[in-house]
Amino acid sequence: MTMELTYKQAGDYLIPDLEVDGADEREEMPLDKYGMLRETFLEEHHPGTHTSMLLTGRLYPHLREIDRQAREQVDRMVADLKKQNGVDEAMKARDQMGWVQAVNSFTAQAEEIVLAEIVYK
């Protein structure tokens, strides 16, 4: 099976007309925080892998999966930390600022771990 490659003129250069499978996926399901961080990490530290995944249509499914895994792990870890430290709805009712500080602290701890173990691995 041969595939004919076409080109378009861009100034003095001929640029190949390439269509990436799944190119519309980015518009259909935009990436959240962890997916975007993963894409930036791949672009900066593994450009060959990023390009290969992009051209083969594997990049956006990969980024969405990383995003899903990271969000689920952060949610799970924050819930566990809240339970271990007695940060519950009763605390939220009696000390709202203390509750917010605790949850923010737990979220920061969980994100630090998730970024190292999932996003930047």
Rank of each mutant, 00 (worst) to 15 (best):
E19M: 09
G22E: 05
A23T: 00
D24G: 11
D24Y: 10
D24M: 10
D24A: 12
E25I: 03
E25W: 11
R26E: 08
R26D: 04
R26T: 01
E28I: 10
M29I: 14
M29D: 11
P30R: 00
P30I: 01
P30D: 01
L31V: 00
L31K: 01
D32V: 04
D32P: 04
K33L: 09
K33R: 07
K33C: 03
K33G: 02
Y34W: 12
M36D: 08
L37P: 02
L37Q: 13
E39H: 06
T40C: 05
F41T: 05
L42H: 07
L42Q: 07
E44M: 14
H45N: 14
H46K: 07
P47D: 02
G48N: 15
G48D: 09
T49Q: 13
T49W: 02
T49A: 11
T51D: 13
T51M: 15
S52L: 15
M53H: 04
L54P: 04
L55A: 12
T56R: 15
T56L: 13
L59A: 04
L59N: 04
L63T: 01
R64I: 06
E65I: 02
I66P: 01
D67V: 01
D67R: 03
D67E: 10
Q69E: 08
Q69I: 12
R71D: 03
R71G: 01
Q73V: 05
Q73I: 02
Q73P: 00
Q73R: 15
R76K: 14
A79V: 00
D80L: 11
D80H: 08
L81A: 12
L81V: 00
K82I: 03
Q84G: 03
Q84Y: 04
N85C: 03
N85Q: 05
V87S: 08
A90K: 11
A90N: 11
A90G: 05
M91R: 11
M91T: 03
K92G: 01
A93Q: 15
R94G: 02
R94I: 10
R94N: 10
Q96F: 14
Q96E: 15
M97Y: 09
G98C: 06
W99E: 05
W99D: 06
W99K: 02
W99S: 05
V100Y: 11
Q101E: 13
Q101W: 10
A102P: 07
A102V: 00
V103Y: 11
N104Q: 15
F106R: 03
F106D: 04
F106Y: 14
A108K: 15
A108S: 14
Q109C: 07
A110P: 09
A110Q: 07
E112V: 00
I113G: 10
